[in-house]
Design a protein around this nucleic acid. Structure first.
Lengths: 144, 144
DNA sequence: GTTATTTCGGATAAAAATATCCTATTTATA
DNA sequence: TATAAATAGGATATTTTTATCCGAAATAAC
């Protein structure tokens, strides 16, 4: 559904959020370990999220990644997916047609519209706080 | 959402179905032209669908691809997607966890479950006949 | 039978996604 | 100020996906 890069980006964001919630900044190394992702590749993705101002970074000793506490609940999954994979998952045509709308629909246009809209709604209505709290309480997991 | 290969496979199957409906067998070249796909790559995908017994092929002059008329309405999109991309789109974890179930859910497990189930239902309940008829009547399109 | 047409299948190429490596820069602490 | 720790970013490597090429096999028509 999503690219590997996007999966890592989502997991990393959730992990950072769950720590920022406690005022803890986390390092690249720690993140990669906790979400079970390749370190250097994860670095690229985090840089991308920083550039998109979804997370913030602090260089140097005792540096790392964090999310301002007040922002955790307002960051939606859609922002992360959009920054990494773009919006084609829920805005593009299911069969890859360049033009596909009500006037010139692909064969599965109607069938996909429902699903794509639901996916979009879900991503736009799920924020990092909800997910981070479940991680903190041990209800959900970021690896294995 | 789907791989290019899968998109081509779906479009090709729909095109073949719409012609088989009229008893017309179609060639690789014609298919690739009508669905706007690379010829040789499409050949590989069609071979794959033949091996999976979703479509059938006839070698030699006046040969081509076809679907037995009686089968058109019983072939589901899920069979085509499954043959080409596997079932990870609607059975795999949204964040790529190897293990992800009710007992050990990823952070977005519940949110994704709904969508993946809907996608699965849609693919399992949409058959080639419905889609082929829309193509024949000019209600939907396979390219542009 | 010969020929033209067409799918089949193996080998190869090109492009994109994933992953690694190394150096530069920044920053806290000793 | 020197050192260690950490992100930033460029270059490169590997793997997967997408795409092309070519000869073999099959088949209908002549």
């Amino acid at each position: 559904m999503f690219s590997k890069a996007c999966e890592y980006g989502l997991k990393a964001s959730i992990y950072i959020a769950s720590n920022s919630y406690d005022g803890k900044r986390v390092s690249l190394k720690e993140i990669a370990k906790k979400i079970d992702s390749p370190v250097a590749f994860t670095a690229k993705i985090l840089q991308d999220l920083v550039r998109h101002k979804i997370i913030s970074s602090v260089k140097g000793a005792y540096g790392g990644f964090e999310i301002a506490k007040k922002d955790i609940s307002s960051i939606k999954l859609s922002q992360i997916v959009n920054a990494i994979d773009g919006d084609s998952i829920y805005n593009g045509c299911g069969l890859g047609l360049h033009v596909c709308d009500e006037n010139h629909p692909c064969p599965v246009h109607d069938q996909f519209k429902t699903i794509r809209n639901q996916l979009k709604d879900m991503l736009e209505n799920t924020n990092l706080e909800q997910l981070a709290l479940d991680i903190k309480s041990g209800v959900s997991f970021l690896k294995l």
